[in-house]
């Protein structure tokens, strides 16, 4: 492993650096939990790492709440999310994804920017953010732009970022005003109970009003397709339904709709058959769990 390292202390410095590096091969390093492993395994020649972890920028490192959104800087770590009680309350799916990412040690340094920009089909935080229909704020030498996170991924390990750009912030839309109840969680299946890269993951965030009506919902699936996918048709299927009217049949139909978005591979962790089967079963279980609650309500 051999590389140059540049440690900009501010974005101003960063952009100067990027201009200088215009014709060089460079990559960003944030928490380094992905990139160092990658470089240890496959060293790259003449590489410069642009270190984002010394940049002093309040927004890049912070979590802030506005009237109808929550903004997370790309430099926010998994542990910052775990410690944030607001997120635990408003977006359980995101909190759980962060809490179940890797290990205590990794969570201290792993950033959401790194999780997203690695563009792994099994990125946990990313999956949660897709289910929340978040937006990525990208900055670059040529200015700022926004893109929905579900459009951010162009393939495994490929993102919409152009040279000279980086991920700056993520904006999560606020929950609906009349939401009184949330079904929001992150399910991650692997062969071991922890420290596990998912074989199948599902992130969901369902908002329900005081009359038990589903106001809106978001489902995202990980590790079952080349990129993380938002399962719009499945969401449409349950949006505006009353949870008391949901049936076992609906659970199956719903699961089928989720499955339409999957196109898994077979690898050493699991076969395509297994991934499809589990995705179906788990999708079904989400609606089944809601049905169980409806009995409780009665």
């Amino acid at each position: 492993m051999n590389f140059e390292l540049i440690n900009p202390q501010s974005f101003k410095e960063l952009f100067l650096v990027l201009k200088k590096l215009k014709h060089r091969k460079y990559r960003y390093a944030a928490g380094c939990t992905d990139i160092l492993i990658e470089l240890k395994r496959n060293p790259e020649d003449d590489l410069t790492l642009v270190n984002l972890s010394q940049i002093n920028d309040f927004k890049f490192r912070g979590i802030s709440q506005t009237k109808n959104s929550v903004r997370l800087g790309a430099g926010v770590t998994a542990n910052d999310i775990v410690r944030n009680l607001n997120i635990k309350l408003l977006y359980p799916v995101l909190w759980e994804a962060a809490y179940n990412l890797a290990s205590t040690q990794i969570r201290q340094v792993a950033t959401i920017g790194g999780n997203i920009c690695t563009a792994s089909p099994s990125g946990d935080i990313t999956c949660a953010l897709v289910s929340l229909d978040a937006t990525c704020v990208i900055i670059g030498v040529h200015g700022k732009r926004e893109i929905r996170i579900r459009d951010f991924f162009e393939g495994p390990r490929q993102t919409a970022l152009k040279k000279g750009e980086l991920l700056y912030e993520i904006i999560i839309p606020g929950n609906k005003k009349n939401t009184v109840k949330l079904f929001s969680s992150f399910i991650k299946i692997g062969t071991r109970r922890s420290m596990e890269c998912s074989v199948v993951s599902i992130a969901y965030h369902i908002q329900i009003d005081g009359f038990n009506k589903i106001l809106t919902s978001g489902f995202a699936i990980g590790a079952v397709a080349p990129t993380i996918r938002f399962t719009a048709k499945a969401c449409d299927f349950i949006n505006r339904k009353n949870i008391n009217a949901l049936t076992e049949r609906d659970a199956e139909s719903f699961a089928l709709k989720v499955s339409e978005y999957s196109d898994p591979i077979s690898d050493i962790r699991a076969t395509r058959w297994y991934r499809e089967k589990v995705l179906f079963n788990l999708s079904k279980s989400i609606i089944e769990d809601i049905i169980k609650c409806q009995i409780e309500v009665k």
Partner: peptide, 8 residues
């Protein structure tokens, strides 16, 4: 877990 085959 008969949905996933996970054994605890």
């Amino acid at each position: 877990d008969t949905y996933t085959g996970n054994v605890r």
